[in-house]
Structure formats: structure tokens, C-alpha cells
Amino acid sequence: MNLLTLNDVVVGYAKGKPLLPPVSLTFSSGEVVGVLGPNGAGKSTLLKTVLGLLPPLSGQLSLPLKRRPRLGYVPQGARPDFAYPLSVLQVTLMGRAAQLGLVKRPSAADAAIALSQLEGVGLAHVAQAPFRSLSGGQQQRVLVARALTAEPELLVLDEPTSEMDPAAEHALLSLVSQRVAARGIAVVFVTHEISAAAAFADRVVLLDSRQKYVEAGPATSLVCSEVMSRLYGRPVEVRREADRTLVWLSGTVPSEGGAR
């Protein structure tokens, strides 16, 4: 099912200063889309436009459901303020904000939904612990649980693993992938790990604002040495093996993207 379509959408912050050429994309249920590009490529700007946080400079966002799809969102690692004295459950319950609307408080049923999502990410046992007492990886899992508590149709992850090592990133994306597969949720994730995009995305969107370059297509055909080298402006080697993809800069050690 088609959830959201971008028709020749131009993204950017100031009129007359588009960051990227017009983008046309469709987000459909059950599909995982990876967004790749170097730093400053316009990835987060594109996501903000998809999320409705930034209006497009031109073009159209069409809503085939005649309403915005229910959104789940996992922000960049350092975005939430970790000084707040909130428990893991209180953070997860924030995911019910859209369902509750203004004024209404979460009920026992909302708490049960939040707890079941925490259980899904393996953190139900720390539901009452202070959020800030968890490790970085655990906090990101809580934010994934919060996003899923919103019962999203479209789940957006903006470099959720920017402060994690590649192994932790793969563990988190595996978890997301398991949690969303059965429910047919559409997923968009921004990553710097080419191997993660190769392993988890059905389609990829490649961006670079400096080259004024946008390309979208199947991950199997676009995540290759030639296209990645062009995108990052340096020689990148990509080798697909049976159930994994190896990626490395020429002259360095490969990083591995395993199967989902």
C-alpha cells in the first residue's frame, strides 16, 4: 500500500536555494528505504520534509490515504535531552502522544502497549529505571520502542546509530527489521554505513547536495563499488557474498553487513 509520495519535491531552507534536484519517491508498506550520502548531503533535510517538519520549496507531497500516515520517529542519537529525570517507561509512553491528542493522559492500556514494545526490544525489565542511567545503545532501543508505541505506518530513523559502532548499528537495525517485518510497516532510515544499507534496505536513495545529485533504486543494483565511489568521491569497494556484503575503502579493512 502506497503511504506517501514525493512528486518533484525540492528540499531546502531558503526559497531560491534548493539543496538537491527535485526528488520523486514513493514510500510503501513493508518496504525498507535506506538514505545514503556524505556529510551535509541533505539527508536530514529530506527526512524533515518527509516528516512534515520542513515545507518543500516546491513540488508536492501526496497522501494516497487522504491523511498523513501515522509516523514513528527515531531521532539522531544525541537529540533527546538526557538530563530529564524520566523513567524508561515514561519516555516510551511519549510515543502515544498522537493517539492521545492534547490534554488526555496515558491510560493503563497505553502503558501496556508501551511495555509490550519495551519487551520487544528486550528492555521491559528496566521499565522503571531512569532513562539516563542506560547505555547509549539501550537508550536508542528505548527510542525505537517509543517510535513503535506510536503504532506507525511509516517509521523514520534519522541516523539513530550515529554514536554507535557498526556492530551495535547492525544489532539495532536487525531488531527494527524483526519488529516491523510482521506488521508491514514502511521504514526509512538514514545511515553512514553502506553495509547497513546493503543488508537492510530494499531500495536506497543516494544524495549529495554538492554534486546536486539524487538517485533512487533497488539496493541490489545501486549499492555497488562504482556508484558508491562516485557518491563519496573516493574509491569504495563493495563485495556481495552469499548472505553478507563487505564494504571498505580501497586500502582499508572491510566492514561487514550481515543478513537481516
Binding site: P75, V91, A97
Partner: peptide, 22 residues
């Protein structure tokens, strides 16, 4: 009335916005 919204908007404004908090 709005403690829940004040708290969410202060803790993580972008996500609160995405989840429909004004």
C-alpha cells in the same frame, strides 16, 4: 492541562512535533 505536552516538547522537540504536539 498541558504538562504532558510541555514535558515532551522540552525533552525532544522534533519528535514531539512529529507525534502531533504543537
Amino acid at each position: 492541562l498541558f504538562f504532558k505536552e510541555f514535558l515532551f516538547a522540552s525533552f525532544d522537540a522534533d519528535t514531539a512535533n512529529v507525534f502531533g504536539v504543537p
